[in-house]
């Protein structure tokens, strides 16, 4: 009896193995399917996603000033640029830059005075301070990245220009972000 109890190989090895393999494979599928809800619950929830777009009245932002609004938990810079700031940015369109971009590509046509950017340094996520740095754009206090008046990276460790959010003008001085 002892021999039979511990016997591990009998006749028809293939059919037996198939059942064990099928059971274990099914178990693996089950585990994989169970893991998904536990990962998916970490994605943004319904109420978070619902707040993903905001409408902002920008009529009170005077030239040379910027408005900072909170969008998706991050600051968005709405900068009303002076003609001099626009000219400075356009002049440098073809300068040697880490992340080349023209000034026109960073604003909406006919709305060149409005520069709307996500106010998060592309280096490690700090919020650059307004109107400081060598180019009069922004200067990031954390590690010294310098952005110009089009939000392009000019000096320092940041790899990319300040990001543009999805936005559109819903009126002359009304903008919908997201």
């Amino acid at each position: 009896m002892a021999e039979t109890a511990h016997e591990t190989h009998g006749e028809e090895p293939h059919r037996r193995d198939f059942i064990h393999i099928a059971a274990m494979a099914t178990g693996a599928v089950g585990v994989a399917a169970t893991v998904w809800p536990f990962i998916d619950q970490m994605n943004p929830s319904g109420d978070t996603l619902a707040l993903a777009s905001i409408e902002q009245d920008i009529s009170k932002v005077t030239p040379g000033q910027q408005l900072v609004v909170l969008w998706r938990g991050k600051p968005v810079f709405v900068r009303h640029r002076t003609p001099a700031e626009i000219a400075a940015a356009v002049k440098d369109d073809h300068a040697d830059m880490r992340d080349p971009a023209t000034d026109a590509s960073r604003t909406k046509p006919g709305k060149q005075e409005w520069l709307i950017l996500i106010g998060v340094c592309t280096h490690l996520g700090c919020v650059p301070s307004f109107g400081t740095g060598d180019y009069g754009g922004w200067f990031c206090p954390c590690h010294g990245s310098v952005y110009d008046t089009a939000g392009r990276i000019r000096k320092g460790p940041a790899p990319k220009n300040l990001e543009l959010p999805d936005y559109e003008f819903t009126g002359p001085t009304k903008v919908k972000i997201g």
């Binding site: 059942i19 064990h20 099928a22 059971a23 099914t26 178990g27 089950g30």
Partner: peptide, 8 residues
Amino acid sequence: FTGLTYLS
């Protein structure tokens, strides 16, 4: 899965 495990 239960059926397969039972056979196993």
